[in-house]
Amino acid sequence: MNTAIEDDSTLTDRYQTTVPASVRRALKLKRRDRIHYTVRPNGEVVLSRASDEPSQDPVMASFLAFLERDLQAHPENIRPVAAGTFAEAERLTSGIEVDLDEALPEDDDDA
């Protein structure tokens, strides 16, 4: 890519945006492709196609490793989830509707 491509996009109330067509073409992005962001110390943001290898969250990886060790060391603690547990979850969440386009509350803006 020899020429610089510049384009703009707008953030929605939920901090989402559409990647401009010019950038999608330059990065050869298709639907469901992943994007990688690098924020440099000077505030510059580099957007690139993410590698096919999923990145690992170190906290989640540590937790899952702990869980695996614990389950192997104490298999007697493994129990099936009872049907009553599912029924209780359904009861607790019945009537709750989620609008994925709803604006986030003010206290979540810093996330």
Rank of each mutant, 00 (worst) to 15 (best):
I35L: 15
E68M: 13
K30I: 03
A26N: 08
F63L: 14
S51W: 04
A61H: 10
S62A: 10
P41R: 01
K30S: 13
P54F: 04
Q72F: 03
P54D: 06
Q56L: 15
R24V: 05
A73E: 05
S48T: 11
Y37N: 07
A65V: 03
S55I: 14
L27R: 02
V46A: 05
P58L: 06
D33N: 02
E68D: 09
D57S: 07
S51H: 09
D52W: 14
V46D: 07
L64W: 06
P41A: 00
S55M: 10
V59R: 11
A73D: 06
M60R: 11
R24L: 08
Q72D: 14
S62Q: 04
S55P: 03
E68P: 00
V39S: 04
F66Y: 12
E53H: 05
R25N: 11
A61S: 10
R31A: 06
L47V: 12
R24I: 07
E44C: 05
A61N: 08
A50T: 07
R34I: 11
N42W: 11
R31G: 01
R32C: 08
L64P: 00
S62N: 01
V45D: 07
F63C: 01
V45Y: 11
D70F: 15
M60Y: 07
M60N: 06
E53S: 09
K28N: 03
R49N: 01
V59C: 02
A61P: 05
L64Q: 10
R49Y: 04
Q72Y: 00
R34Y: 12
R25C: 01
S62G: 01
V59M: 12
A65N: 05
A50Q: 10
L67H: 02
K30D: 02
E44S: 09
H36V: 08
I35A: 08
V46F: 11
K30Q: 13
L71D: 01
L29H: 01
